[in-house]
Design a protein around this nucleic acid. Structure first.
Lengths: 168, 168
DNA sequence: TGACGATAGTTGATTCATCAACTATCTTGG
DNA sequence: CCAAGATAGTTGATGAATCAACTATCGTCA
């Protein structure tokens, strides 16, 4: 039977659901399995000798590209698609390890800037080669250039769909 | 500068890393952002009135398709790309709520079967329409049929790459 | 047969994520 | 000016994921 499969009817109400056909279901499951295994493998690659988790790494990347290696908490949360609370906790941990520091935002006394330290930058430089190598092996080089480009375009659309719930 | 970007050199060793070019990097970041936002949004849709999490839902789907609505723990872990430990904990929680039960495996006294109860099946039937609708809105209908099909094929390759670390 | 290594699954400690509640500042309409 | 509401960020409790260590059974090869 199965859920997401055509014909899940029994007798329940909801006759109006458009179930997935066999091919759609195949693609959907590959998507699920692929993302799951990919992130697991990428995380493993990071644990291999790197002292930053995958999430911390992405945070450092964002900071490294910002002017002054500095970004407001809210901007950071936005770029990383993280909840504010989660970012607070993550930055707590990284601050304890000296990878970032918090400073007040000049104009706005509610705001907090997150600034990458030299130690943070060093950690990023340290982790980058292994990271890129893993991303290549697991994703980029596993696909044809066309497939990878389509993947990028498709996921951009998906991000939009997830961001804006409804816009008539 | 950034990590995963071309030219991350400073002076470090590791001259041999093949960095991503601008387009590759764009695609890679869209992939990251898209998956992150997609799973967050899908999880939210599940919290809207459904008493099973996304992970539990997928577990029930697998069971619903197995003969006797029964699967060994190890097979289930495999299908769902879950660690054994995580599966144990998840099944613990679901068993407490009566969605599944554990039974011994006939031939092998090490083994444990996970069996879906009627309540588990009812929960699945209950959650399915909302689930499929969300998957459609956030993924399937957000893409062209070609894009979605390519996404499926691509992620199948990615899953393979992540499963087999190296096979000459 | 019986010792050894592999396989199956669990446990509990630690780490991490999530959620609701909270403080503080900022903005805007009256 | 100032009250109401929006924004920014934190906190702490709860629940879930991870990791290493552990028990038990199985398979096999000497």
């Amino acid at each position: 039977m199965g859920a997401t499969s055509a014909r899940e009817r029994d007798d329940e109400g909801r006759a109006d659901v458009r179930w997935l056909d066999v091919e759609q279901q195949w693609a959907w499951r590959r998507f699920l399995e692929g993302t799951s295994r990919f992130f697991e493998a990428l995380g493993d690659a990071h644990d291999q000798g790197l002292p930053v988790t995958l999430g911390e790494y992405h945070l450092l990347v964002q900071l490294s590209e910002a002017p002054g290696r500095t970004l407001r908490m809210s901007a950071l949360a936005d770029f990383l698609a993280l909840s504010r609370s989660r970012l607070t906790h993550t930055v707590d941990r990284m601050e304890r390890r000296g990878l970032v520091v918090r400073t007040p935002v000049p104009g706005d006394r509610r705001g907090v800037n997150c600034v990458m330290t030299d130690a943070g930058y060093a950690a990023l430089v340290d982790a980058a080669p292994g990271h890129v190598t893993a991303v290549r092996r697991l994703l980029v080089d596993a696909l044809t250039p066309e497939e990878f480009a389509t993947l990028g375009r498709a996921m951009a659309k998906v991000a939009d769909a997830a961001r804006g719930p409804a816009a008539p």
